[in-house]
């Protein structure tokens, strides 16, 4: 009887420890997946920019949003090939940041490092080939650690006037399959 209890306790603790670790590892993926679903309208809008309206008290897409920034997001999916992202210049702080499926911010390009005319970034998985021409046209070729993830552009736009200017700049930006016809 005593032995049975020891086996029960040891097995339960072992299982609890394993599930604790598994859940902790899985949790960021679960939340990131949910964010990708929200930002892409459940996969309807992948490999295309979605420009968020000014962050107001009714915004519920992403936790703790900044009301002083203009956000654009592109949920990318590289399963059918690389994706090309282009960003326009901005006379103030801006950044393009890339997030993998585990929430890591694995790449950031801000306006200080960006050419004055803007930049093209090609996003691919490590095993995807691109042509020399495509490489030459890009400011940077970035390997994504996961097939899906989120590209995010932040532009400092603390006033309605600056926000309107941000809107004019960002409609010219691309997030699209690189080899699409």
């Amino acid at each position: 009887m005593k032995k049975a209890w020891i086996i029960w306790l040891a097995s339960t603790l072992l299982l609890a420890a394993a599930l604790h670790v598994a859940f902790m590892f899985a949790y960021p993926y679960i939340l990131m997946n949910a964010a990708m679903d929200r930002l892409s309208a459940n996969g309807e809008r992948e490999n295309v920019w979605t420009h968020a309206p000014r962050m107001t008290e009714t915004a519920r897409l992403i936790v703790r949003p900044s009301p002083d920034l203009a956000y654009s997001s592109c949920v990318y999916d590289l399963s059918d090939g690389p994706v090309q992202i282009s960003v326009q210049p901005w006379g103030d702080y801006m950044s393009l940041s890339l997030f993998g499926a585990n929430t890591d911010n694995y790449f950031t390009l801000n306006d200080r490092r960006m050419p004055e005319s803007g930049a093209i970034v090609i996003l691919r998985t490590a095993d995807q080939a691109i042509t020399d021409e495509q490489r030459a046209a890009a400011f940077e070729v970035v390997d994504s650690p996961s097939a899906r993830g989120i590209a995010l552009v932040r532009r400092l736009a603390p006033s309605p006037e600056r926000f309107a200017e941000a809107e004019a700049a960002r409609v010219q930006e691309e997030c699209r399959a690189l080899n699409a016809e």
């Binding site: 992403i62 703790r64 929430t103 890591d104």
Partner: peptide
Amino acid sequence: VGSVDADPYTRALVARIGLLGLNRQE
């Protein structure tokens, strides 16, 4: 935060309160 060096606990917490946060150099 946001870093590829984040441990699983920090990553999980950040996913809850600061998803899509930038790393501290930025």
